[in-house]
Design a binder for these strands. Structure first.
Lengths: 231, 231
DNA sequence: TTGAAAAGGTGACAAATATCATATATATTT
DNA sequence: AAATATATATGATATTTGTCACCTTTTCAA
């Protein structure tokens, strides 16, 4: 087994709470973890499922969503390289309130909850680090609430593209690296797929976005920003 | 100073993370805390403000809200007896993302952040307890996101009344203990005040709610539940 | 106690958004 | 390569919700 398969040597760790673990703790995590490969579209866990551990994202992106009674999926968060999924449920000892599905091909590490919970009770630095990141997630959730309830669909879609650019970047030709389907974008902003498609078409006509195959790119960031702010 | 003014003897503590503090730590908190009386409508802290500590609610209810660019206030959470406000900002070392305003007359304790942060780095039980409660808040925030984006205003208002009943109870005559203005209810569910008033009137006409002065009461819980679920 | 301010209420209308139907393009499977 | 499924697109229409105007009732302070 190559040394990069050990948590101690994993660079991803630097982006999440595991960086606050001691060498000993990391060794324990590394010994108990398993790696998983998940293909685009496959589920990692389902809403209501009891999680026996957390998932550390090494490659790819996962959408964390919740099904509402009317059958629509609301995407609450996108989890990327370095992020840990399922922490909330493990900590609160509740079943998962969200489903996780791979947006593209992914590599994950599954860490059994014992290794995590143990450290949570012993290493305050680690616990604090998890807390700090969760505080950040909570702020983001608050922002989403305000955005959804106060901004128009058009504003939220504009914002979504700005978010995709700033979080996942664009390729050499100026197309967004993370390609989401119109349906996924609709589920992020909380609207009907048709409304989303219509507004994206409008943005393309107005020269704010460009497209090539499945890829979408931002042409006029300034105008998108103005739009998102309500001008 | 009466003994009930000491955190060690405060019953409220049992409802929040402070119950995981040691006697020594509580003494330190108690020595540094100050009590505050806040009248209905007064602000406790504002969005963007740097918080030098947290507020423990001893009596009354506070609304935590965020102003959006169009001038409307979105209430993200109601904080009651036992809850601690401002933790998120202190932990993340960020300015507050929310404003806190008293919904009715309140008694608060202000605990300077040093006493909290110190303990966070030393007592894993306390840190874990804070984490556990924040995990719970995060789940609630996720639920709010899904509700706002997937349910109609009518459903959300029905839900708000069920929430008020189950969280704050009703008096002998069946009126809700916590009386919110129509505007506040509108800001909780994320709608226009007029729309909220209209729907409450409709609920009264249909015999789902009753009113007496400012007070509102639930007459038909079953139907309200059905409505909230979309029937 | 009375007059101003705030909260509650309602109608008319406009705007935003969802829904349904249907068409076309693109991807996937056989 | 044809057949099938899935994603994107767009028009027509219905529904929901917001906005503005105005009125009444309640609250509160001078």
């Amino acid at each position: 087994m190559g040394s990069e398969s050990r948590c101690e040597n994993c660079i991803i760790r630097q982006f999440n709470s595991l960086r606050a673990m001691t060498k000993e703790e990391l060794k324990q995590v590394s010994d108990s973890k398993t790696s998983k490969i998940i293909k685009k579209g496959e589920a990692i866990f389902e809403e209501g499922e009891k999680l026996n551990g957390v998932f550390c994202v090494r490659e790819g992106v996962s959408k964390l969503s919740k099904l509402s009674s009317n059958g629509k999926d609301q995407i609450v968060k996108l989890a990327t390289k370095g992020e840990v999924m399922g922490q909330r449920s493990v900590i609160a000892e509740e079943t998962s309130n969200l489903s996780a599905v791979a947006v593209n091909d992914m590599k994950l590490c599954f860490i059994p909850k014992e290794a995590i919970v143990n450290t949570l009770h012993k290493n305050p630095d680690f616990t604090f680090e998890v807390l700090r990141l969760m505080a950040h997630d909570l702020r983001e959730a608050d922002d989403v609430i305000v955005n959804i309830s106060q901004k128009t669909v058009k504003q939220r879609i504009a914002e979504a593209f700005l978010y995709l650019k700033s979080n996942y970047g664009e390729d050499e030709e100026g197309y967004l690296v993370l390609t989401l389907s119109r349906e996924d974008i609709a589920n992020v902003v909380g609207t009907a797929t048709e409304s989303c498609i219509r507004i994206i078409s409008e943005f393309k006509k107005k020269g704010l976005l460009k497209s090539s195959g499945k890829k979408l790119g931002i042409l006029d960031e300034k105008k998108l920003k103005d739009l998102a702010e309500g001008f």
